[in-house]
């Protein structure tokens, strides 16, 4: 495809911006967040603009729900394996993998063991995780932390740096309030304040947690009650990317310098907010399922000033 044609098609893609389907490439450049249909992503990859996207920094995998075996997807291990094949097939391997929770369906030791077994197939070996509420339903809430607690000293929240980007992993599935949304809690918010205190406003920040850190749909608990206290701490930074899972579908918004994005699941889709009795597994025709599962990859654009998000479906 010639550059002219590419640009022309790209303009059309911008006009007919569609979420879902084959996926969407999000390029954040010079503060302008630009969606491009994923069907063109390969051509875009080869173009001048595409090359400026740079190396994929990390891939976000979410809601693998190992142990789920109902009609909506009887083979979640298979779809996770397919997902890993997509990641392993990327021309340049991402430096990191981030898992935004619900690794397992029922917090069972055998489920965690199987998930870890499957993760070993990833060519990229550095993985960072946060738990989902499905990972913490065991009576003592220890199965997740026994395996993944080391990074956070069993607290569930921690931070690290990679390629000039500061990553903050948060937990919002433990201190649930009856009738309410997810909660970060005062202790964790204080820790974030201390963690950010001496960082330059030009440092790109990636925040990730399982439940959305913005209220998408309160009646189903799709939000975090005290997230505004987190966002007020992030306001001074020039580039903030907030990544979540939990809702098994892509929902996104941009507010000032902050890009909020929820990833697809690799296990099963969930209904759009408010459709049906609750956020349970959504049964779709088998041939449509792969198009509703997938990953998000994030690259550094014009290093290290901003990040680009790219969603890929299994089909």
């Amino acid at each position: 495809m010639s550059d002219d044609k590419l640009l022309l098609t790209r303009r059309n893609a911008l006009k007919c911006m569609a979420y879902g389907g084959a996926g969407t490439l999000f390029a954040l450049s010079g503060g302008v967040f630009t969606p491009v249909d994923l069907a063109m992503a390969r051509a875009y990859d080869e173009s001048k603009e595409g090359k400026a996207l740079g190396k994929p920094l990390f891939v976000q995998i979410s809601d693998t729900h190992i142990g789920f075996n109902k009609e909506a997807n009887p083979d979640v291990a298979g779809t996770l394996t397919q997902t890993i094949e997509i990641v392993n097939g990327m021309s340049v391997q991402p430096a990191l993998i981030i898992h935004t929770g619900d690794i397992t369906h029922l917090s069972k030791p055998a489920e965690f063991d199987m998930a870890q077994q499957i993760f070993t197939r990833l060519r990229t070996t550095e993985m960072h995780t946060v738990p989902g509420e499905h990972d913490t339903t065991d009576a003592t809430v220890t199965e997740y932390f026994n395996r993944f607690g080391k990074a956070s000293n069993n607290k569930g929240y921690y931070s690290f740096d990679h390629s000039g980007v500061h990553f903050i992993a948060l937990i919002n599935v433990l201190q649930f309030k009856p009738g309410g949304l997810g909660t970060l809690g005062a202790e964790q918010l204080d820790w974030v304040a201390a963690d950010l205190k001496h960082r330059s406003a030009s440092t790109p920040i990636v925040v990730f947690a399982h439940m959305p850190l913005w209220t998408i749909y309160e009646p189903w608990g799709w939000g975090t009650g005290d997230a505004d206290q987190l966002m007020s701490q992030l306001g001074r930074f020039g580039s903030v990317t907030v990544l979540n899972g939990h809702i098994h579908q892509i929902v996104q918004k941009v507010e000032g310098n902050v890009t909020f994005h929820t990833a697809r699941s690799t296990s099963y889709p969930q209904p759009v907010a408010g459709v049906g009795s609750g956020p349970g597994p959504l049964k779709v025709p088998t041939d449509q399922l792969p198009g509703m599962l997938g990953i998000t990859s994030v690259s550094v654009v014009k290093h290290p000033s901003s990040l680009a998000l790219n969603d890929t479906a299994l089909a």
Binding site: K70, A139, P279, G280
Partner: peptide, 19 residues
């Protein structure tokens, strides 16, 4: 009876099911 797991957790900590 849902396809989605649920738990039962007492507000006071008196009882707590697993998933």
């Amino acid at each position: 009876m849902d396809d989605e797991p649920h738990t039962v957790v007492s507000d006071t900590g008196l009882f707590k099911s697993g998933g």
